[in-house]
Design a binder for these strands. Structure first.
Lengths: 155, 155
DNA sequence: TATCTTAATTTGTATATACAAGCATATTAA
DNA sequence: TTAATATGCTTGTATATACAAATTAAGATA
């Protein structure tokens, strides 16, 4: 392997962003395993717990996920008995069940453990700063037009 | 949506790393579309072009992808006529075909266009620095034990 | 040399995620 | 009030990716 090739990899934002995303996902999956849910599902449930009646559209805006992805996740959470859909015309409200609410303490605990773990490895400040930088970069790129291909509202 | 909830999202490394990865992937897919390959496939082909005879194992080490993932990608590139497998006992050597080599200029061009695009949006220095930070963070997390679950060599 | 172990690769299968298309409701305009 | 359009949600389908298990070959050991 040429030094050149290695350079290209570690300097390419596509490669580094995806590598990081994969390793962070592995960590998060481990940390959230006690909840019985994957990290993305935990986000959804938490959003519903904190904002009962929130709609899938709002969810997908906040989570930066395609609406269809949210539908699938909601399906799963409904099947597991943590979430309920309540239709109001075209709109859907998502409400946590008692079981869903009951899971919140575990979720919070898992969250803290996840945060702590990466802060231990990266350094507390670096870990938090990294998250902020990533967030800012992602937002800049999205605002520059690289957003999900849904013809929904302009948001 | 509570301010709290938004905070949690934009401070969580899982969320930010994945958001960034998705938006960067969208950009890269667009930039590499002229090559007819997805960004990951381009990486693979490029590695083979620069290191003819490289094995899948090495590929997966460099690209931080599971061996099975590399197998699938190689399948695709072989089907498209860009890559050839040459078995040597248990080991496989990957060689670009003439078509694969011929694609290299397009790949290089797409690469530059991708790099330029994100540097325009993020700022030239910030863009490059970001890639470096991501790479370092990913490596730290991997070295701390969050690596792919393959029982292959200890690498 | 026969067998045990380890490493490289592939195959089977599962999940996360996306896009495109379809459907139902809501809103606007005639 | 009907027709046209836009919006929200779901379904069909496809890709990227992973893990676990199967396979095959290599190397070590008895």
């Amino acid at each position: 392997m040429t030094a050149d090739t290695k350079e290209i990899l570690s300097n390419c934002l596509y490669f580094t962003a995806n590598s990081l995303s994969r390793v962070v996902t592995r960590m998060a999956e481990e940390a959230f395993r006690p909840t019985g849910l994957s990290p993305s599902h935990v986000f959804l449930l938490m959003l519903a717990n904190e904002n009962p009646g929130i709609g899938p559209k709002e969810m997908s805006d906040y989570l930066q996920l395609a609406p269809s992805t949210v539908t699938r996740f909601v399906d799963t959470l409904v099947n597991k008995g943590y979430l309920e859909r309540k239709a109001d015309g075209k709109n859907i409200g998502l409400f946590p069940t008692l079981e869903g609410l009951a899971l919140q303490p575990d979720i919070t605990k898992a969250w803290q453990s996840f945060h702590q773990k990466y802060c231990e490895i990266l350094g507390s400040e670096e870990g938090d700063n990294l998250a902020v930088s990533l967030d800012q970069a992602a937002q800049k790129l999205e605002n520059a037009g690289y957003r999900l291909a849904c013809k929904c509202s302009k948001s």
